[in-house]
Design a protein around this nucleic acid. Structure first.
Length: 848
RNA sequence: GCGGGCGUGAUGGAAUGGUAGACAUACCAGACUUAAAAUCUGUUGGGGCGUAGCCCCGUGUGGGUUCGAGUCCCACCGCCCGCACCA
């Protein structure tokens, strides 16, 4: 008997799909469209199991949607700009462009054997001038629409390499190459006005019903809408022009507990003092050490500097508070200045304790509570507390009520006003790097900052650059910067900053609808294919990429590049987990870990018998030697096995651990299905059988369960049902007609996961056409209902017995039967039951 | 530090608030075989007793809601993701 040979089968069916252009997406008004998209990959050079899992999930959806009569768009491209290409050029020489396109070619070659239903005719890379030229056009339109502007912002500055560092290039406050202590330095940069859309981006989250609730919540918190009071303290002994300090607070009800005012080291007053006073300059310099991330700032030791300046309390001008410069106050949020209320904020409490400032409670749990606090008293805003120093509202009220009352009181008395603020900051898109889309503007001595003319696009990156010294090669290129001013024609200089790679990935989904057009999009295509019906990618993109894409879709609508319906570009979102693998390690003489490849380890030991430590479920990483190369798996077992396994072993939103035994098992299972198919194909046509009805009932049940499983992303559960049905079919003694029906439906149900094997079975049994084009099987509802059901009987909520009853038996009769059950009689011991709960078709619970 | 999530046998996991552990791995046993591999079949959460049966415990820890909680609520512990220049 012949054997399951995936290498041969898979090549054959991939050729067949290519020949018939099965996956080429063409607009067809007669069919419902379906756009499925997985987050496109960065072309690192090798695909990994995470990619296989991500694209297989999308492929299952795409193939299922094809089978259910949809016109499916399933494209693929490359997120091709970014730092790794420049790092490679620095580390191993060569050019980012060559490195990137080489990687793309390699990865495409590794992806094609997976048999994905991708329309490769739409492929593009974000580093193609055809793509980033259209992106430059979008930028100019957004500039024109007032959605782009320039302002100063801080960057990580490496004072030795004299270059800007990315956050990931700052390790423990030092530059990764130079080892120098990093400083925060201001630079003029380009920004998208995403904060203008904060309210809409927040409100529209409610409409994203098919997004995970956790992602919507994360975005809501990121946008961070708050209602508070903005007011000014008048200053005493401050430099000229600083007679007021504007502060913003979300807790105006604690105003009577204010014991200091804190300003950011980047606050205009701090900067003014810095120019005149060495001690302030030294403190501010100290504060500016370290990276720019919020994490670095918030975890740094809290430091304050008493400026000697005082402010007057707005309710009691005789009462003066000290003004501190504090390293934990962000200039980007609010006004860059706060008042500290140590009694009700742990950070302020620690600060007050450190600098000997008073701790004044404004509210307490009750009237007889002590005012001496060992730590900040921070109850939930919904809790009712006693205001011992309240000035607005009731003595007993919740924080929410007190805040509203305080804002109203302050507005009436001319102390500031209630304002709404957002945590969301504008999106800085400038990067002082080569391998990105050039920002298409020109700096002219006479005209200032001038947008490039659209007919001059794309502004292409020069190829003749070197990476032997740190910094942006565009800055030191001999001629690239020189260009006539688009306005006056006199010699001028190009902007050398390039765009953040998040810009590239914020509209690629729209470009896929008309990837070769000489405008960013074509309205007819965008209107037909948008929105993305199902978007699939990693949870790590929950905030930035998805929020930026939502902003960009709105901006593209405003500038006429997307229809109104596409301002929320992703109708449904699914966030999938990682593929992990055990790490095997031993220790060297100094106790440092030495990692070992999986193939070096058998039964927990190395070849020489040394036992290894095993770390389970670890993210795949080359340095930890726990990477499994999909090419090796496809070579050994075929793509269908790899696809089947990555879906079978864990729910798709969770991590899945790659195990050699699991892959082996997947392969065995597919071999078994293939063998069953062969056996049925060779059955004598006249063979009579028994149990046709049972087999067909199981088949319809499986059609139902697998369909629901695919539609709800329950791929692992769907696969469990397919395992079970395969076992049923294998043991079945049914006649040839029923068995043939069963194997054909099984092949169809498996086809989204194992498309090659399914095509092979389809053709082996003489079916016309390709299985990929065959309509999805439907379950016969009458075959799904059983005549009798088994009801578990609980006594006090614990299962003690069960009864078998007709499915349509009345509650009363079920109750009678339950009371006649031996276990129930025994526990009742002659007494009457307190209560009987009968849930029809589910359970009986007797309370004794 | 802040925001979000997750936690179930030896392992991955299943379970619209209704029989916890489906399905798979691993292990063990059996069939076939001279033998092994392959294949097939079966057992397996822990503990106990008077062992065809029955009882107790069990979904990170502690509490709560409910006739009934892996599932809902609160607190804690551990791990993971994000924190605006990694992609």
């Amino acid at each position: 008997m012949s054997r399951y040979t995936p290498a041969e089968i898979e090549a054959r069916w991939q050729a067949a799909w290519e020949k018939t252009e099965t996956f080429k997406a063409v607009r067809d008004a007669a069919k419902p469209k379906y756009y499925v998209l997985e987050m496109f990959p960065y072309p690192s050079g090798r695909i990994h199991m995470g990619h296989v899992r991500n694209y297989t999930m999308g492929d299952v959806i795409a193939r299922y949607k094809i089978a259910t009569g949809h016109n499916v768009l399933h494209p693929m491209g490359w997120d091709a700009f970014g730092m790794p290409a420049e790092n490679a050029a620095m580390a191993i020489g060569g050019h980012p462009k060559d490195w990137t396109y080489g990687n793309i070619a390699d990865m495409r070659d590794q992806m094609k054997p997976l048999g994905l239903s991708i329309d490769w005719s739409r492929e593009f890379a974000t580093c193609d001038p055809e793509y980033y030229g259209q992106q430059q056009a979008l930028f100019l339109d957004m500039l024109d629409a007032g959605l782009v502007y320039r302002k100063n912002a801080v960057v990580n500055w490496d004072p030795v390499d004299m270059t800007v560092l990315a956050n990931e290039q700052v390790e423990a406050g030092r530059g990764w190459r130079s080892g120098a202590l990093v400083e925060r330095r201001e630079l003029t940069q380009w920004f998208f006005k995403i904060s203008d859309m904060a309210e809409d981006l927040l409100d529209a989250l409610d409409g994203l019903e098919n997004w995970p609730a956790k992602v919507r919540l994360m975005q809501e918190n990121w946008i961070g809408k708050s209602r508070g009071l903005q007011f000014a303290f008048s200053t005493v002994d401050a430099p000229e022009g600083h007679d007021r300090i504007e502060v913003y607070t979300t807790r105006p009800d604690t105003l009577m507990g204010a014991s200091f005012v804190g300003i950011s080291p980047d606050h205009p007053l701090a900067k003014a003092l810095e120019r005149e006073r060495e001690d302030v300059a030294a403190f501010n310099a100290e504060c500016r050490r370290g990276g720019t991330t919020e994490e670095a700032i918030e975890t740094a030791e809290k430091m304050g500097f008493d400026t000697g300046i005082r402010v007057r309390h707005p309710f009691d001008t005789a009462h003066e508070l000290p003004v501190y410069i504090a390293n934990f106050i962000l200039m980007d949020y609010g006004t860059g200045a706060i008042f500290g209320c140590p009694a009700h904020d742990q950070r302020d409490f620690d600060f007050a304790t450190k600098y000997g400032l008073p701790i004044i409670a404004t509210y307490l749990p009750s009237e007889d509570s002590s005012e001496d606090l060992a730590q900040a008293y921070v109850p939930a805003k919904t809790e009712t507390v006693y205001y011992n120093r309240g000035f607005a509202g009731e003595a007993h009220q919740t924080g929410i009520e007190a805040i509203d009352a305080a804002i109203a009181f302050c507005e009436q008395n001319g102390v500031g006003q209630g304002v709404t603020k957002y945590r969301l900051r504008d999106w800085g898109l400038s990067r002082q790097r080569y391998w990105g889309a050039p920002i298409p503007v020109v700096h002219c001595d006479a005209c200032g900052v001038v947008p490039e003319k659209k007919e001059n696009l794309p502004i292409e990156l020069p190829y003749d650059v070197t990476f032997d010294t740190p910094g942006n090669p565009l800055n030191r290129h001999p001629t690239w910067r020189d260009t006539p001013c688009p306005a006056c024609g006199k010699p001028a200089q190009r902007e050398t900053d390039t765009m953040d790679t998040f810009v590239d990935s914020s509209w690629y989904f729209a470009r896929f609808t008309s990837p070769r057009a000489d405008t960013p999009t074509v309205m007819e295509d965008a209107d037909y294919w948008m929105n993305v019906d199902q978007y699939i990618g990693g949870i790590e993109h929950a905030i930035l990429h998805l929020l930026y894409s939502r902003f960009f879709a709105r901006a593209m609508h405003i500038t006429g590049h997307l229809p109104a319906k596409a301002i929320e570009p992703f109708d449904a979102l699914f966030t999938q987990g990682m593929v992990t693998h055990e790490i095997y390690l031993t220790r060297d003489a100094n106790g440092r870990p030495v990692y070992h490849l999986p193939e070096e380890v058998t039964d927990g030991k190395l070849a020489d018998g040394t036992p290894v430590e095993v770390i389970p479920s670890a993210k795949m990483s080359k340095s930890k030697k726990n990477v499994v190369d999909p090419a090796d798996i496809i070579g050994a077992y075929g793509a269908d096995t790899a696809r089947w396994f990555v879906l079978s072993d864990s729910p798709p939103e969770r991590d899945v651990e790659w195990t050699a035994s699991g892959a082996e098992a997947a392969f065995k299972h597919l071999s078994r299905v293939w063998a069953i198919s062969e056996r049925i194909a060779e059955m004598d046509e006249s063979t009579a059988g028994e149990g046709d009805e049972d087999l067909l009932r199981a088949m319809h049940r499986t059609i139902n369960d697998v369909t629901l499983g695919i539609e709800s992303f329950g791929f692992n559960a769907a696969i469990a049902k397919l395992y079970a049905f395969t076992a049923t079919l294998q043991k079945s003694k049914a006649g040839v007609a029923a068995q043939r029906e069963a194997i054909l439906r099984l092949a169809q149900l498996m086809s989204p996961m194992t498309p090659h094997l399914s095509e092979d079975i389809w053709s082996r049994h003489g079916q016309d056409g390709l299985i990929v084009s065959a309509p999805w099987p439907t379950a016969d509802d009458t075959m799904l209902v059983d005549d009798t059901v088994t009801l578990p009987i609980q006594i006090n909520g614990k299962r003690r017995s069960e009864i078998s009853v007709p499915a349509d038996m009345s509650k009363e009769e079920v109750e009678k039967l339950a009371l006649a059950d031996q276990a129930v009689i025994r526990s009742l011991d002659g007494a009457a039951p307190k209560k009987i709960i009968v849930v029809p078709g589910r359970i009986v619970n007797v309370v004794v």
